Structure formats: C-alpha cells, structure tokens
Computed example of a mutant assay.
Amino acid sequence: MSELLIDLGNTRLKWRLQYHGLVQSYGAMPTCSLSLEQLHACLPASFDALFLASVANREKNSLLETWLIEKQIPCNRFSTQASFKDLINAYRQPSLLGVDRWLAMVAARQLSQEAVCVVDCGSAITFDYIRADGRHEGGYIIPGARLMVQALTRDTANINICAPKSNAASADIQSSPLPGTSTFDAVSFGCHKMALHGVRALIKEAQLNGYGILLCGGDGEKIANELGLTYIEGLVLNGIAEVAELDKH
C-alpha cells in the first residue's frame, strides 16, 4: 500500500510518498502560490491513501480537498490529541495546540526519551518542552524573520516603498555579518538577527535547564547550522507516520 503524507503549513506544503513504510519520494512547494494545477503537476499521481496535517487557511484546505475529490482518494486528517502513548499534552483544550506542533512532539518523543525542546522554525518559531516522563510543559511562539519583515513592510510606509508587499512575502530572508546598505537589506538582516538571537537565547535557557534540542521547519536547518545543533528534516511527517502506525522498515 502506498501512502502520501502531507504537512500543509502557512509557508510550505511538505509531502512524502511511502510504500510499506519505505520513502519513495518527497518534496515541498510554497503555500502562497498553491493552485490546483500545481498540485496535479507536483504531487505524486498515484497512491492509495492520503494522511494530512494542516494549519493552513480554509482556501488552501479547500484547494487540497478539490484535488482529492478529483483523484477519488480517501483522506485521513489528523487533529491534536490529549495524549499519545506516554506523551501528555499540556493544553487545557488540546485542540487549540497546532497539529504541526503536536506531531513534531510525537516524532521527537520517539527519537528521545530524555527531556527535549522541539524548536520548529517556520512562519512562526515555536518552542515546545517535553519532560523525560513525556509530559508536555507548554511552549513559546515568536514571529519568524519573514513575519517580522511582512509586518514592517505592511505597516511602515517608507519600507513599503523600498520593498513592496508582493516581494516581501516571498523574499528569502538573508543574514549578514554587516549592517544593510539599503532599507530592505537593513530590515531583512535585522529581522534575521532578531529571530536568530531570540532562538539562541531560548535554546541556551532550555539547555541550562537540562533539555536536549531538536530543530525542524523550513528555516530550522539554517539556524541549526549557525548554532551547531541537530536538525531533523520532516519531523511533522514523521509524527504523521507514527500516529497512523504506518509500516516501518
């Protein structure tokens, strides 16, 4: 049986095709420009079942639903649980915790039975703390560099002149050891530094409190490389596979 796993986020759609637990192919595409034509062109044409975790808006979810109806494929959609095995959700209302954060924690718990902090660096940067006994202690959510840039370009007129909204939303946020010599570079470099130093400070605090660190998400690899930390590709997809009990090899 072939399974298509999809993690539909605010910035990217991440997917993985598995056959009896073996990864056959994988990929990602920007969510902002998602279209029915793109789904047909970029996602696998043939599979038996789909497993979906989504935090995207109604429009993007509806687009994916239309694609599935056309393909006549059953969809197994995941929601956040109060617990999974020995992992206990800290939220009083578990459904209010983003399913991507939950599934990343599920996957992290399978990788380590020690206290761990899961840092997901996407549109927002999230920190979730899991004790060694599996109890989730809660977390933090801070804006990622792109959200900071978008806020500045949206709400500050002179920066809008230098970097229109249409460009700011899709720009690759760059880092530099030197200050920017244009307004948009100053914003881009500055927001990256704010995100990096915020992540660095919270990670240092977590390490001092005895937590191991796992980074994931679209910007996670860059930050992991800069800080010398472990990056796990597709942690949310790993969580989907774990909860769905898909065959492993």
Rank of each mutant, 00 (worst) to 15 (best):
D155V: 13
L178R: 11
P164R: 07
E221W: 11
V187R: 03
P143L: 07
L215F: 05
P179M: 05
D219V: 04
N167V: 13
I213S: 05
A169R: 08
N160Q: 15
S188H: 14
P143H: 14
G210P: 01
A186L: 02
T183L: 14
A168F: 11
I203G: 06
G190Q: 03
S176G: 13
K222Q: 14
N160D: 09
L147S: 03
F184M: 12
D172P: 12
C191E: 00
G217L: 01
A168S: 14
K193V: 11
A151E: 04
L178Q: 09
S166Y: 09
G217H: 07
A163G: 08
N209D: 10
R154L: 11
A163L: 09
F184D: 07
Q150K: 15
T153K: 01
S175I: 05
V187E: 02
D185P: 11
L202K: 10
C162D: 12
S182T: 13
I159Q: 03
N160H: 09
N209P: 01
T181H: 10
E221Y: 13
S188V: 11
P177L: 08
A157P: 01
R200G: 04
Y211Q: 02
G210T: 00
C216I: 14
M148T: 04
K204M: 08
S188L: 08
A186T: 08
I213D: 03
S170H: 15
I173S: 03
A157V: 13
F189Q: 00
I161E: 13
A163Q: 11
G212R: 15
I173D: 04
I173M: 07
H197K: 15
Q174M: 10
G144T: 06
T156V: 14
C191T: 09
P179W: 02
K222M: 09
A168N: 07
A186M: 05
C191L: 01
D185T: 14
I159K: 02
K165M: 14
P179R: 00
L196S: 10
I203A: 14
L215N: 03
G180F: 05
N167W: 11
K193W: 13
P164W: 05
N209L: 14
H192C: 08
Q174P: 05
K165V: 11
T181C: 04
V149Y: 00
N160G: 14
R154W: 12
I203R: 03
A186E: 04
G190P: 05
M148F: 03
A145Q: 03
G210Y: 02
E221M: 13
N158E: 07
A157Q: 07
G218A: 07
Q174D: 08
K204D: 15
L152R: 03
A206D: 00
Q174C: 08
E221V: 11
Q174R: 08
C191H: 00
A169I: 09
L214W: 00
K165D: 10
Y211V: 01
I159V: 03
L208V: 06
N160A: 12
Q174H: 11
V199P: 00
H192Y: 05
S170Y: 12
Q174I: 15
M148W: 01
V149E: 00
I213V: 12
R146P: 01
S175E: 10
G210W: 02
N167R: 14
G210N: 02
M194E: 06
A151Q: 15
D172W: 07
I173T: 06
G210L: 07
G212T: 09
R154Y: 07
T156G: 04
G217F: 00
A195R: 01
Q174N: 12
G144Q: 11
E205Y: 06
R146N: 13
